[in-house]
Amino acid sequence: MTTDNETYDIEAGTELTEPVTLTVNGVDHRLDLPGRRLLSDALRHDLRLTGTHVGCEHGVCGACTVLLDGQPVRSCLIFTATVQGCEITTVEGIGDDPAHPSAVQQAFIDSHALQCGFCTPGFITTIEAFLTDHPHPTAEEARAAVSGNLCRCTGYQNIVTAVCRAAELKHEAGGAEECAGCPWDGEQS
């Protein structure tokens, strides 16, 4: 591939990199990355956090959804160099221990809300943020909350059930009232 923008070291045959500082799941990382490195690829290839899945790579499927300062975003539509200084949470940061799944992960197990599991990390991150903002969702709100994520196996009914089940589990654990990461608290009437 030829390029005239000096992003390749022609003699060495390698792409030039820049230092990038990234905070993921509470851990600071210093990486040397090409300018074109997408956040989804930095997470998977450079940090080996392969819980974040990459489906369509143009923002439609939602599989790569991660939390950026607590809010869900598509990691395939973000250049890594543009989110230095932000707090990134991946599905590993929500629950990385099969013996102790998060409330949302447990709800997915309870409700049979996954089959192949490819889309699941994007749902888990999306629902985690949604329940922080909406601790008492109706089924209709739950359905709207996951409308930006595609699943080709389950048909969505069990996923909607899992959203409501996760809200229950969070209440049972007493965690839903502790809304620490919601930047909108106090601003809404």
Binding site: N5, G35, L38, E57, H58, G59, L77, F79, T82
Partner: peptide, 23 residues
């Protein structure tokens, strides 16, 4: 580039190939 939610799909699909982005 600001949020990039329209631009990055265009770049990912290589419908545009700017050499530089100013964030």
């Amino acid at each position: 580039i600001a949020g990039g939610q329209s631009l990055v799909p265009v770049l990912n699909m290589r419908l545009a190939t700017p050499g530089h982005l100013v964030d």
